[in-house]
Simulated assay, not measured.
Amino acid sequence: MDLRIFTEPQQGASYDTLLTVAKATEDLGFDAFFRSDHYLKMGDVDGLPGPTDAWITLAGIARETRRIRLGTLMTAATFRLPGVLAIQVAQVDQMSGGRVELGLGAGWYEEEHRAYGIPFPAEKFARLEEQLAIVTGLWGTPVGETFSYEGTYYQLADSPALPRPAQGQVPVLIGGHGKTRTPRLAGQYADEFNMPFASAEDSERQFGRVRAAAEAAGRKGDDLVYSNALVVCVGKDDAEVARRAGAIGRQVDELKENGLAGSPAEVVDKIGRFAQAGSSRIYLQILDLDDLDHLELISSQVQAQLG
């Protein structure tokens, strides 16, 4: 089971804080550092010092790390034009030496669009589908050839399809709970399907839908990586679990029900249930980015038991 660190900087984190967490992620042996792509806080937090842009952040971290994978869960298709996004991600991939992954979603948080003057179209899912076709099409165009696309929302004419990512084709992540359209898009375009904040039982059902969609698209179900994103709250004892839950404004019982919470043994056991459901990778949502001891405990007491 791969464990990846997943942060939510819109809740309040500077670039320096994110870099510190990313370096700890690398030093402690985790597989990757991912971040959300949001411009507005959620819930009862001050969100200070304010939002950081996902791909600018990852560009900086790419130059300060050497091993870990870097990516987004999820970049909103509403935030960037697909040609520009392909250039940005390819450049960060070059800056990292080929360690970038792109999680791409339709976008859902209308308030942040209003707050920063970003259009929030009704046909978000249809736009996402065209963005996926364009981004993967640009990256898949041989050097020296051009890429054109005539869609309902986006049109590209004779693009040189440059720059190319260092790794050729950046892995694409698609995720979500939708029972029909989401599996179809994942089956066609995704290298990884991520099921966010769901039970092992619901994850297993959704993984099955994605496998079926991949096979309908002429692929093998095992062509995709299947993963989960879950909030994590681990402590050496009950008091430490309660302290960490309180620091992020959550209740221990709720975290144990809906996330990965409790002692290292409890968390390892629950991770095993997701593995049985077909997951091979978990994005650990870290909500207190100042608690680096939490990362160390997960590394030494949870990750070490997973092999």
Score class of each variant (00 low, 15 high):
residue 115 A to Q: 01
residue 146 T to I: 08
residue 87 I to H: 06
residue 92 V to N: 01
residue 86 A to M: 05
residue 95 M to N: 13
residue 84 V to W: 04
residue 116 Y to Q: 14
residue 66 R to Y: 09
residue 66 R to A: 13
residue 154 Y to T: 14
residue 169 Q to F: 10
residue 110 E to L: 13
residue 117 G to M: 10
residue 158 D to L: 07
residue 98 G to P: 07
residue 70 L to C: 12
residue 60 G to I: 02
residue 139 W to G: 00
residue 111 E to G: 12
residue 154 Y to G: 03
residue 88 Q to I: 13
residue 167 Q to C: 08
residue 171 P to T: 02
residue 175 G to H: 02
residue 109 Y to S: 14
residue 115 A to P: 03
residue 122 A to N: 15
residue 90 A to N: 15
residue 64 E to F: 12
residue 67 R to L: 09
residue 86 A to I: 05
residue 87 I to C: 09
residue 60 G to A: 03
residue 148 S to G: 14
residue 175 G to L: 02
residue 111 E to V: 12
residue 119 P to M: 11
residue 170 V to E: 00
residue 105 G to I: 00
residue 171 P to V: 00
residue 143 V to E: 15
residue 174 I to G: 06
residue 165 P to W: 04
residue 69 R to N: 03
residue 89 V to A: 11
residue 114 R to A: 11
residue 169 Q to L: 15
residue 104 L to C: 12
residue 146 T to E: 13
residue 79 F to K: 01
residue 175 G to D: 00
residue 122 A to Y: 15
residue 69 R to T: 06
residue 163 P to T: 02
residue 142 P to G: 10
residue 122 A to Q: 10
residue 154 Y to L: 04
residue 145 E to D: 15
residue 142 P to Y: 05
residue 109 Y to N: 08
residue 177 H to S: 05
residue 104 L to A: 15
residue 62 A to M: 04
residue 129 E to V: 09
residue 113 H to N: 05
residue 153 Y to V: 03
residue 143 V to R: 09
residue 114 R to N: 12
residue 172 V to C: 08
residue 110 E to M: 14
residue 145 E to K: 09
residue 142 P to M: 03
residue 147 F to C: 07
residue 174 I to K: 09
residue 78 T to Y: 00
residue 97 G to Y: 08
residue 117 G to F: 08
residue 124 K to D: 10
residue 162 L to N: 12
residue 154 Y to M: 12
residue 157 A to Q: 13
residue 116 Y to M: 05
residue 95 M to T: 05
residue 146 T to P: 05
residue 155 Q to E: 13
residue 127 R to V: 02
residue 116 Y to W: 15
residue 98 G to C: 07
residue 65 T to E: 15
residue 132 L to R: 00
residue 150 E to L: 14
residue 143 V to C: 08
residue 76 A to H: 04
residue 85 L to W: 01
residue 83 G to Q: 09
residue 79 F to N: 01
residue 99 R to M: 04
residue 124 K to L: 13
residue 85 L to F: 10
residue 106 A to T: 13
residue 76 A to D: 06
residue 78 T to P: 04
residue 140 G to R: 08
residue 122 A to H: 15
residue 136 T to N: 04
residue 140 G to W: 00
residue 61 I to G: 02
residue 119 P to E: 05
residue 61 I to P: 01
residue 124 K to A: 11
residue 118 I to V: 11
residue 73 L to E: 10
residue 60 G to E: 00
residue 155 Q to L: 08
residue 108 W to H: 06
residue 59 A to M: 02
residue 68 I to G: 00
residue 117 G to A: 12
residue 110 E to P: 07
residue 118 I to H: 10
residue 92 V to C: 02
residue 59 A to G: 02
